[in-house]
Amino acid sequence: MAAPRILFCHCAYAKVVPPEVKQEVLRRLCESGAGFDAVPDLCDMSARKDPALKRIAESGAVRIAACYPRAVKWLFHAAGMPLPAEGVEILNMRTQSADEVSRDLLEKS
């Protein structure tokens, strides 16, 4: 079974994600051998109905480092590209530590 894809949201427009958490998570991703997609801002992509969301939503299992799972789920839906019901894991950089997020993102990747 293929490892889940990884999506990292940089949340470029707001300070709601602690900078030290998102920087550390990105650093750990860069240190790993894992492939990943990094996007400047999922909200912005949702508003634009960016086709990249479709590519991500349809790519099978995916782990997403962003914010609250409820927000991420409905951002994809709002773009007309809902995430699949299964195989999606959303990690919350607003409330979880960089250690927790990185560990769960990179687990068996």
Partner: peptide, 26 residues
């Protein structure tokens, strides 16, 4: 990657076996 994200670019770092450049209109 940080500099590219700060400048508003989406970045894909592919790993072996990925469809990194699959056409999605971007």
């Amino acid at each position: 990657i940080s500099a590219l994200l700060d400048s508003g670019f989406e970045v894909t770092r592919p790993s072996r076996g990925w469809e990194a450049a699959r056409d999605d209109g971007s």
